[in-house]
Each structure stands twice: as structure tokens, then as C-alpha cells.
């Protein structure tokens, strides 16, 4: 039997144990970011999205105002040359989605929001899902998630020079600003072209990889309406218009997938690819029914752009990861607050 230790060796042993436990706790705290106040966390992004005084309980923290739709995606088979995903095999697949406005305010007036979006989930018989969230701008304002966070901070800043400083550091914002200023406004979600902006990798049946972006191109001809004219149509004109329009007949978009050439900026959604890139029309999205969000089928869907079927994956674009992390945080918060957003038809958002 080993010798019983002396008092001083016991103290030494206890000290060794304390050091080991403290080191483990320190490593854990470091990994969790508690010692790195500079780390860009999902909480920081989601906090920065919500302006002070805006009531958001129970709602998405961005693209907070929206309306659900259901319909069908009909693949024509052409997408199979780019990706082995079942969603591109000729056939019809159920789709659920959400027209929305890029605002953190669920009560924002429709005429006041420059950027419009579309969230989409297509399900295939193999049990897989493709989720994507797109906007009508042709490019994203900034190149990196950190720059996006700085943009949120600058937009909410009282410092009149905050935005100017940011534009100095991130001149890429200029292209988005030019689009926002000059692009025509339309009077309908059905007349909008929606773009993935982010780049993804499609993997085809021979395991060859293709860097791609995609767009939904409306069948309805866009009619430009001046913003002052839209302002007269009321705070919910987009939702009323799309409800009536789809009631009168299904609305369609062509899904077009664009493949990058070697060297195209796949990692930077603020940079458009040249117009001449190979584009494959892979199918048609038909929106058949509109439903209010409060008790609609899109309410509980987190349109996380990293939920991808086999045959698609993320690329070197840093945004899908950041969006996935932030969307999850938004989802965690709003599901915890669901009681504040009653699940009743006609409830004011």
C-alpha cells in the first residue's frame, strides 16, 4: 500500500489540481469568446439589426415584414448538368415561401422599404430541402460579414460622419448606393427579380463542381412606379396587391442559375459577375396561394441559406455561414417570444 502523503505534499497536490481545473475553465471561457469582446457573435449582429424603440417581439429580426405563399417548383431537368440535387430532376416539387421587406420593423410601411426579398423552401421526395433567401438588389452592399455589422452600427449611429467613415473604409458600398438611388421601384412583388447574391457550389453527377449564383426572373413585366405614387397606395399595398393578384391567377418566375468563370469573385457578393456568364434556366416557380404570416405556413421556417440538398454546398463566400448563425439566433429569440405574436389570422403584426 502506498505511503500516506505528508501535509505539505497534500497542499502541493491540491495546488496542482486547482491549476489543472482553472486551466480547463480558462480554455473553455476563451473558446466561448468570453475573453474576446471583439469577436463578432450572432448576438451582436442580431442586436445591431434592431433599432431602439422598434417592437419586434416574436418577429424575425430582419426582413421582419412578410407574407406567406405556397406553390410549386417545376424543374425542367436542365439543372442536372450543374447539380445532382433531386430538385433539378424534371418534375414538380412543393414550395413554401415568403415575400418580405428588408426591414427589422414588422410594421414598416411597404412604400418605405427599398429592398424586397423572397424566402423559399423546396422539398423533394428524397426527404431533402433547399432553402434560399434572396433579395431584389443585384449586389450586396458590403464584402464581408464584419463590414455588414459595421454598416448596421453606422446606420444606427448618431455620429453624422459614421456613414462617411464607413464608405471610406468600404468603397464597395457605392455600387449598392447607386442601385438604391437609380433602380426603378415596382408596385408588386410579382414584378421583382430576386437574386441569391451569395455564391454556392453545385456538384454534378460526375462530382464536378460549379460555382453558381441564382435568380428568380419574373414572368410579369416590371412596371416602374415613382416612389411618391407608391406612398399613396398605403402601408400594406404590396401585401394586398400580391394577394389579389395571385387570387386572380398564379404568378411565375423562371429560376436561372449562373455559373462563374474561373477567377470570378465568388467570395464577394458586393461584386456582380459579368453579364456573359453561362446561365441555365432550370425551372419555374409558380406561386399559387397567398396566406397571412401570423398563422401561415412560412411563419415557422428559418430560411437558412445553408440548408441545402446533396448536390449543393457553400462556397468561399463568407456570408451564408454568417447568415446561418444570425438567422438561427433570430429564430431562437422569436420562437421564445411566440406568445407576443399571436398565431391568429388577421392579427396585426
Amino acid at each position: 500500500m502506498p505511503q500516506r502523503p505528508t501535509a505539505s505534499s497534500v497542499l502541493g497536490s491540491l495546488a496542482v489540481i486547482a491549476v489543472i481545473i482553472a486551466a480547463a475553465a480558462f480554455a473553455f471561457a476563451y473558446t466561448a469568446g468570453w475573453l474576446s469582446p471583439h469577436r463578432l457573435t450572432p448576438d451582436k449582429i442580431v442586436d445591431a439589426l434592431t433599432p431602439p424603440g422598434v417592437k419586434v417581439l416574436g418577429h424575425r429580426r430582419n426582413h421582419a415584414k412578410g407574407i406567406c405563399f405556397t406553390g410549386v417548383f417545376e424543374a425542367n431537368g436542365a439543372g442536372s448538368e450543374l447539380s445532382s440535387a433531386q430538385v433539378f430532376v424534371k418534375g414538380q416539387y412543393p414550395a413554401v415561401g415568403r415575400f418580405n421587406l428588408a426591414t427589422p420593423d414588422p410594421n414598416a410601411g411597404d412604400p418605405t422599404v427599398r429592398v424586397r426579398g423572397l424566402g423559399l423552401q423546396i422539398s423533394t421526395p428524397d426527404g431533402q430541402e433547399w432553402r434560399t433567401a434572396m433579395i431584389d438588389a443585384p449586389i450586396f452592399p458590403v464584402s464581408t460579414p464584419r463590414a455588414f455589422y459595421q454598416l448596421l452600427i453606422a446606420s444606427g449611429s448618431k455620429d453624422p460622419n459614421a456613414m462617411k467613415t464607413l464608405v471610406g473604409e468600404h468603397p464597395e458600398i457605392g455600387a449598392f448606393g447607386a442601385w438604391a438611388k437609380s433602380a426603378p421601384w415596382t408596385g408588386s412583388y410579382a414584378e421583382e427579380r430576386f437574386n441569391s447574391l451569395n455564391s454556392f457550389i453545385f456538384v454534378d453527377n460526375s462530382s464536378a463542381e460549379h460555382a453558381v449564383r441564382w435568380s428568380l426572373i419574373p414572368a410579369a413585366k416590371p412596371v416602374s412606379v415613382p416612389p411618391d405614387e407608391l406612398a399613396k397606395r398605403g402601408p400594406d399595398f404590396l401585401e394586398k396587391e400580391i394577394t389579389d393578384r395571385v387570387h386572380d391567377g398564379p404568378q411565375r418566375w423562371t429560376l436561372a442559375v449562373t455559373a462563374a468563370n474561373p477567377g470570378d469573385p465568388t467570395a464577394d457578393p458586393s461584386k456582380a459577375w459579368p453579364e456573359d456568364r453561362k446561365t441555365v434556366e432550370v425551372g419555374t416557380l409558380t406561386v399559387q396561394q397567398i396566406e397571412a404570416e401570423a398563422d401561415g405556413p412560412c411563419r415557422d421556417i428559418n430560411f437558412d441559406p445553408t440548408v441545402l440538398p446533396t448536390g449543393m454546398r457553400t462556397s468561399d463566400d463568407p456570408f451564408p455561414a454568417a447568415r446561418s448563425a444570425a438567422y438561427a439566433k433570430s429564430f431562437d429569440r422569436r420562437t421564445a417570444e411566440a406568445a407576443d405574436y399571436p398565431r391568429t389570422a388577421g392579427a396585426t403584426p
Binding site: 480554455a27 469568446g33 463578432l40 454568417a322
Partner: peptide, 20 residues
């Protein structure tokens, strides 16, 4: 698992997806 867990919920960088 525990270290991956606390790391992944504290980042928005591409390693978020890897860790998840």
C-alpha cells in the same frame, strides 16, 4: 463536443458551419 458547442454559438465566421 462542449468546446465545439460554445465555439460555434459565438461566431459568424465560416468555421461556424464546420463546427455545426
Amino acid at each position: 463536443m462542449l468546446f465545439i458547442g460554445v465555439a460555434m454559438v459565438s461566431t459568424v465566421m465560416p468555421k461556424y458551419l464546420t463546427l455545426v
